[in-house]
Nucleic acid binder design. Structure first.
Lengths: 138, 138
DNA sequence: GATGATCGTAAGCGTGTGTAGATGATCCGT
DNA sequence: ACGGATCATCTACACACGCTTACGATCATC
């Protein structure tokens, strides 16, 4: 009943996950935020930069630099929205999709290893509960 | 099978938890780190500042400011270690313990509310798995 | 006793982060 | 056609963070 608090547990686990993700992203030459942007891009459809900033939680002025670098490496494309030419529609290129797929596979394998020691039923419940909680607070 | 990644889920949930903790700590005039220090202090016994820094994960030079403020408000006491006077032994005062207890109760209530919607079995498994994972990666 | 190590403290550095204008292009309502 | 609003961008700023260095006090060892 008197377990450590959620915040402490979450932050500790989060640090662990990030530490394990870092070498994977380093190998692909990506920063954490680059990866978050690519992931958000793969899930949402033709977002404007403001929408992308909102969905990733990144500050919109900071997002610009990430997009600059990703665009220079041919992973994303910025094109003016034909419907409203003030907007820039960001899209994932085939190169970007390929890099993202590689990182995502490696990260999923890392996560599987991290969760391997859990009781299978607990693990399923953990993932279910975490997804529900994260989904609700959006 | 293709759920969002752990890192994203964790960071999202973490932001939610912190957002809910903030008003509680604000009411007590505490920063996040202050609260982490007080909590660590309640659990460990007569720690030196270096030990406290290690157990909280805070940089030892950054810890000083927190202790200064907590000490000025009468929540912690710093005394030279009689066994080795280079060390300063930090302890929780009765005032500090009282403030900590109040925050902790409020935060536990907040967490209970946050988790209330979960299936009871899932919730128990979630807490169990999270504790195990956080424990292992220490 | 002299030397080297350890602890708490202070100050500086580089980085990451959010905010606040200012600008140019563009859209919208009148 | 005009004025106000919106979007991406740039610049400057303040701030928190962790890391490094330096210093004085203290201990441990020879």
């Amino acid at each position: 009943m008197d377990r450590p608090e959620l915040g402490f547990l979450l932050s500790r686990l989060m640090r662990e996950v990030m530490a394990r993700e870092k070498p994977i992203l380093d190998a692909a030459g990506l920063e954490m935020w680059d990866y978050a942007v690519l992931t958000a891009l793969a899930e949402s459809d033709a977002p404007t930069q403001a929408q992308l900033a909102a969905s990733t939680g990144r500050d919109k002025t900071r997002l610009i630099g990430n997009l600059d670098r990703l665009e220079a490496r041919g992973m994303v494309a910025r094109e003016p929205d034909p419907a409203d030419r003030r907007n820039r529609i960001v899209s994932l290129t085939s190169v970007g999709a390929k890099v993202l797929r590689g990182c995502r596979d490696a990260i999923e394998a890392m996560e599987a290893e991290l969760l391997a020691d859990l009781d299978p039923a607990d693990r399923a419940a953990f993932e279910r509960a975490l997804t529900a909680l994260a989904e609700r607070s959006r």
